[in-house]
Design a protein around this nucleic acid. Structure first.
Length: 156
DNA sequence: GCCAACGTTGGC
DNA sequence: GCCAACGTTGGC
């Protein structure tokens, strides 16, 4: 099993939005970046664990845990001219973009903030902490995953 | 709201 | 294939 981190803007789609879905499951559409696409299409497996990260907000932080409920399949919103992430270069015969389904598992006991993570050398290799990194989907090592779960248990 | 860093596009 | 221009991301 692998571990991942996926970013979302809470104003657009936060962890509470995922938790409010039927079966607490939703498709993760709108990713339009090839590196992220490849990971969703080729690497994510059902049951993999995912940190849900809130980006572009007041206190960027990991706020919860989800899991992969369905492995990569074509992102059909790319074919919908009305959709925000419509891409005329993608078509059903040759889909350019892929997505997965995520199922909400739980919120963290407290958010583990970006600011806090920067203070721990154990996490320094995470793409999340590297300057200028814009990947919205990234792998997390088991050591990093476990470390962050330890942080969660520690009061701020 | 600013702006640095990055990915993509398209002219050549 | 190069690279300048452009749009986007996302922390601050």
């Amino acid at each position: 099993m692998q571990y991942w981190l996926m970013k979302s803007e809470p104003d657009v789609y936060g962890i509470d939005d995922l938790a409010a879905q039927p079966d607490q499951t939703d498709h993760w559409d709108g990713v339009r970046n090839y590196q992220a696409r490849n990971m969703m299409r080729d690497q994510m497996k059902k049951g993999d664990k995912v940190f849900f990260y809130h980006s572009n907000c007041k206190e960027p932080a990991i706020v919860g845990i989800a899991e992969i409920a369905r492995e990569g399949y074509p992102d059909f919103t790319a074919w919908d001219p009305e959709a925000k992430y419509f891409d005329p270069k993608s078509d059903p015969d040759n889909p350019r973009w892929y997505m997965v389904d995520l199922r909400f598992k739980r919120k963290l006991k407290r958010p583990v903030t970006l600011r806090e993570m920067k203070n721990h050398p154990e996490l320094a290799d995470m793409p999340l902490l590297r300057k200028g990194n814009r990947l919205s989907v990234m792998p997390v090592s088991k050591a990093e995953w476990d470390f962050i779960l330890q942080l969660e248990k520690t009061p701020v």
